[in-house]
C-alpha cells in the first residue's frame, strides 16, 4: 500500500474519532459542571443528550420552527428539566450524602428514559443535517458537514464555559461552592442557587450535544446510558473536575476507538479503550489533567 493511501485512511479514522470523541467530550463536560459544584456524578447526563435530540425533533420536525429558534427552545426546555431534577430529586433527598444523591440521579435517568419511551415510542428519530448531507472531500478522506458542526460547537461551548468559570463572578462563585460549601456560604454565596444553576447548565450542554449528534447517528429513547458510560470514561481519563481534561479525555477515547477499529479489530475497540483507561488509572489515578492535591479534599 503506498503512503498516500495510508495517509487517507489514517485521516479518515482520525476524523471519525474526533467527531465521536467530541460528543463524549461534551457529555464529560456536562458531568464536570455538576461535579464541580456538588461533588456528585449526575448519571442522568446521558438522558439530557437523548432529550435534547428528541425534543428538537418535536420543535423542528413537528412544529416546523426555524432551526435556530428550535435549537434555542430545545436547550431552554432541557435546561428547565435540569432545574426540575434539582428541585424535585436532589433537594428532596432527606439525608444528602454523595452516595444517596448519585443513586437519586440514577433513578432520575431511569425515569426519564421511561418517560421518553412513552412520549416518543421506541423508534429512532432523525433530524436534518444543519448544512446538508453532501460529504466533503478532505485530502481523500470524507467528512460529513455535520461533523464539522460537532467539532466547532464543542470548541465554542468549551471556550464559553472556560470564560464563564474563570472570569465571570457567578462562575467563580460556582467554583467556590465546589472548593468548600460552608466557606462559600459564609462569604454570601447562595450554594443552593449555584447547584440549581449547575444542573441547568449541564442539562443545556447535554441538549446541545443531543441536537448536534442526532443528524449523524439518529436518536432513540434508550441511547442515553451508552453516552453516559462513554462520557464518564472520558471524564475519568481526563481527570475529574478539569474542563480541558474532559475534552482531551473525550477526544482520546474517540480516537482510540476509531483507530483500533480501523487498524486492529472492530470487535475489540471498546476493550482497548477500557484497557487504556485502566492503565492510565494505575499510573495516574487522578486522570491526565486531574489535580492530585485537590482530589484529596474531595469526598468522591
Amino acid at each position: 500500500m503506498d503512503s498516500a493511501f495510508f495517509f487517507t485512511y489514517f485521516l479518515q479514522f482520525v476524523i471519525s474519532g474526533i467527531t465521536i470523541g467530541s460528543i463524549y467530550a461534551m457529555v464529560a463536560v456536562g458531568f464536570n459542571i455538576i461535579y464541580n459544584v456538588t461533588e456528585i456524578i449526575n448519571f442522568a447526563q446521558g438522558e439530557f443528550v437523548m432529550l435534547g435530540g428528541l425534543i428538537m425533533v418535536i420543535f423542528y420536525n413537528k412544529l416546523d420552527l426555524p432551526i435556530l429558534i428550535a435549537f434555542l427552545m430545545t436547550v431552554i426546555v432541557v435546561a428547565m428539566i435540569g432545574l426540575l431534577i434539582d428541585q424535585i430529586v436532589i433537594k428532596s433527598i432527606k439525608q444528602p450524602t454523595v452516595l444517596t444523591l448519585i443513586i437519586g440521579t440514577i433513578a432520575t435517568s431511569i425515569l426519564l428514559k421511561g418517560a421518553a419511551m412513552f412520549i416518543w415510542g421506541k423508534n429512532p428519530y432523525d433530524l436534518p443535517a444543519f448544512s446538508g448531507r453532501e460529504a466533503i472531500n478532505f485530502f481523500g478522506a470524507v467528512i460529513q458537514p455535520q461533523a464539522l458542526w460537532v467539532i466547532g460547537i464543542l470548541v465554542v461551548v468549551v471556550g464559553l464555559l472556560s470564560f464563564f468559570f474563570e472570569k465571570s463572578i457567578i462562575g467563580k462563585a460556582m467554583r467556590a461552592c465546589s472548593d468548600n460549601q460552608d466557606a462559600a456560604l459564609l462569604v454570601g454565596i447562595s450554594v443552593k442557587r449555584m447547584i440549581l444553576l449547575s444542573f441547568a447548565l449541564s442539562a443545556a450542554i447535554g441538549a446541545v450535544a443531543g441536537v448536534i449528534v442526532t443528524p449523524i447517528a439518529l436518536m432513540e429513547y434508550d441511547r442515553g446510558a451508552m453516552l453516559a458510560v462513554k462520557g464518564f470514561a472520558a471524564l475519568i481519563l481526563g481527570g475529574l473536575g478539569s474542563f480541558p481534561g474532559a475534552v482531551i479525555g473525550g477526544l482520546l477515547l474517540g480516537l482510540i476507538e476509531a483507530l483500533v477499529a480501523g487498524y486492529i479489530s472492530s470487535g475489540y475497540k471498546d476493550a482497548f479503550a477500557l484497557a487504556v483507561l485502566l492503565i492510565l488509572l494505575f499510573v495516574r489515578p487522578h486522570g491526565i489533567l486531574g489535580n492530585p492535591t485537590v482530589a484529596k479534599f474531595k469526598k468522591f
Partner: peptide, 19 residues
C-alpha cells in the same frame, strides 16, 4: 467487522473494508 448496538459511527469499519 463488528460494532456495538448503540454505536454512532461505522466509518472506520467501512474504511477498512474499502481497502
Amino acid at each position: 467487522e463488528t460494532y456495538g448496538p448503540k454505536d454512532t459511527d461505522m466509518t472506520p469499519q467501512l474504511t477498512k473494508i474499502k481497502k
